[in-house]
């Protein structure tokens, strides 16, 4: 498979959040601030890339019957490593992300890519797929986070640095309803764009 196509699939055409609607639980829960969304996305990218490489390496050794338990063990290992690294080096963000870091294990994107891509493709393609699926997820989370943080708190903070702020905020956007609203409106926006492009072709 062409590397360029894998990259484009991950970032846009099969974007995990807006195209496949996978991993929505962390998407809704952690996108209250740009930094949170970004760190969550990077953690998922790390797990996705590592597990894709390992699954691809072992794809001829792992017996078909036990592939799911084997994949899950591999994924869980990387998630726990990511969890410990985050707790050690960015404790504040680790605390805000809370339970959603361990829950990366059950994020459908990761098992989905292991099952549908890494177990059938060579190591390099799997690495690229993992990285760019992860980046696609990170981009989506960041987009939702920026909208919610700016509208909901009236400011934008990037790893502790205030980028800008103004004196007006619609608090509802950082609360749970705001997550559903923002995600729903963005989903419909992307569908609308697709529809428009589809009719022109």
């Amino acid at each position: 498979m062409k590397t360029g196509k894998i990259i484009w699939d991950g970032l846009a055409k099969q974007n995990p959040t807006f195209r496949m609607a996978l991993g929505l639980c962390p998407t809704l829960a952690v996108t209250t601030a740009l930094t949170n969304g970004l760190v969550m996305g990077i953690a998922v990218t790390f797990v996705l890339a590592c597990s894709n490489v390992l699954v691809s390496l072992l794809r001829k050794i792992i017996p078909d019957k036990v592939r799911i338990p084997a994949f899950i063990v591999i994924i869980a290992t990387f998630v726990t490593i990511a969890d410990m690294l985050l707790e050690g080096f960015v404790p504040d963000i680790h605390k805000t992300l809370g339970i959603f870091i361990p829950l990366i294990v059950v994020n459908c994107i990761i098992l989905g890519r292991a099952e549908s891509f890494a177990s059938k493709n060579p190591v390099f393609s799997s690495l690229v797929d993992g990285i760019f699926m992860g980046l696609g997820f990170t981009l989506s989370l960041s987009l939702i986070s920026v909208i919610r943080e700016v509208l909901g708190t009236g400011k934008l903070i990037f790893f502790g640095n205030l980028l800008f702020s103004f004196d007006f905020s619609v608090l509802g956007f950082v609360l749970a309803p705001g997550a559903f609203l923002t995600l729903g409106l963005l989903l419909s926006l992307f569908n609308y764009i697709d529809l428009k492009r589809g009719t022109r072709q």
């Binding site: 072992l58 050794i61 792992i62 017996p63 019957k65 036990v66 338990p69 084997a70 063990v73 591999i74 869980a76 290992t77 726990t80 490593i81 410990m84 690294l85 707790e87 050690g88 080096f89």
Partner: peptide, 23 residues
Amino acid sequence: IALILTVIMLLSAIALAVTHIYT
């Protein structure tokens, strides 16, 4: 099958132990 799974688990346990000691 059992052996392969065991080896994977073992390697995963080692990886976790190392990270734990480090962090």
